[in-house]
């Protein structure tokens, strides 16, 4: 609908389509620039800096913010991801099973846990599980609890992702494997799942980013000083120093990880796009 279109139309007075498009673009830029300027002028930068960017407070956070807080955030995230992946794989396979009750159970799990806020699941793990099984400890202490909570949160989503990935592998792959004498389980493990994972690597990495942020919910489980992660660490320090600089630093630490991860995802997605072509 561009130049050829315009050329075909009878000449009209006023702007051509291209000129109109240019004008509309110009207006959009102007509005955006005005908004930025208005924000910059009206914000009280002095107070903001005072509250959020005190260099000496920021300095005093190091190295603990990295060696303790970021380390714990990463540990919680990864352990939750592993639990979620294993659980999600089991649920995905149940969902695809030819056994009716398995499919049904998996469906129920997915519907329940996809619909619950992560916060509720953390509280559930922190309160309900110890009540329900008195005397038993979740192995690994806080780490185990976080891994379980984050695992439960992510498993439903991952199960759906993995199922979609498995179903995206062409049917001929399973038939070729079976015709070579693979059992269904062996074919799944050596042929289908490796291909499925290549397909779902981008959404799985996205889930890792989400979990990274959700790990902040650990503060609802009650943690010791050594078990604090970025959000709790930042908040605690913010209240002792009566200044919000630690929040900003903690936020930057999150971005330090999530931005490169998102970049990797985009790279993988464009690579996958190329592979299809």
């Amino acid at each position: 609908m561009t130049d050829t279109d315009t050329a075909l139309q009878p000449k009209r007075k006023g702007l051509t389509r291209r000129q109109k498009r240019g004008l509309s673009r110009g207006v959009q830029y102007a509005v955006f620039a005005a908004a930025v300027i208005a924000f910059a002028v009206t914000a009280d930068w002095g107070r903001l800096q005072n509250q959020f960017a005190q260099a000496d407070i920021a300095k005093q956070m190091f190295p603990d913010v990295i060696t303790l807080a970021l380390k714990n955030t990463v540990l919680y995230t990864l352990s939750g991801f592993v639990v979620g992946l294993v659980l999600g794989m089991v649920i995905a396979l149940m969902r695809l099973s030819s056994v009716g009750p398995y499919r049904w159970l998996a469906g129920v799990y997915i519907e329940i846990f996809r619909g619950l806020p992560a916060l509720l699941i953390f509280i559930f793990v922190g309160v309900a599980v110890p009540l329900a099984f008195p005397g038993t400890e979740i192995p690994g202490g806080t780490y185990g609890k976080v891994a379980l909570a984050l695992g439960l949160v992510s498993a439903a989503y991952m199960a759906e992702t993995i199922r979609a990935g498995i179903q995206a592998v062409p049917k001929g792959q399973m038939e070729a494997a079976r015709s070579l004498g693979f059992s269904p389980a062996k074919a799944m493990v050596s042929i289908i799942i490796p291909q499925a994972f290549r397909i779902i690597l981008p959404p799985l990495t996205n889930e890792l980013v989400l979990l990274f942020k959700d790990s902040s919910l650990v503060l609802f489980l009650g943690v010791t000083l050594e078990e604090r992660e970025l959000s709790k660490f930042g908040r605690d320090l913010a209240s002792t120093t009566a200044n919000s600089t630690p929040i900003l630093v903690a936020g930057l630490c999150y971005l330090l990880v999530t931005i490169p991860l998102s970049f990797v995802v985009r790279r993988m997605e464009s690579k996958a796009q190329e592979a299809i072509r």
Partner: peptide, 14 residues
């Protein structure tokens, strides 16, 4: 099936 080789129209290589 180990004793029966099968070749498909769409190759189905891994």
């Amino acid at each position: 099936r180990r004793r029966i080789g099968m070749v498909f129209q769409q190759f189905n290589l891994f």
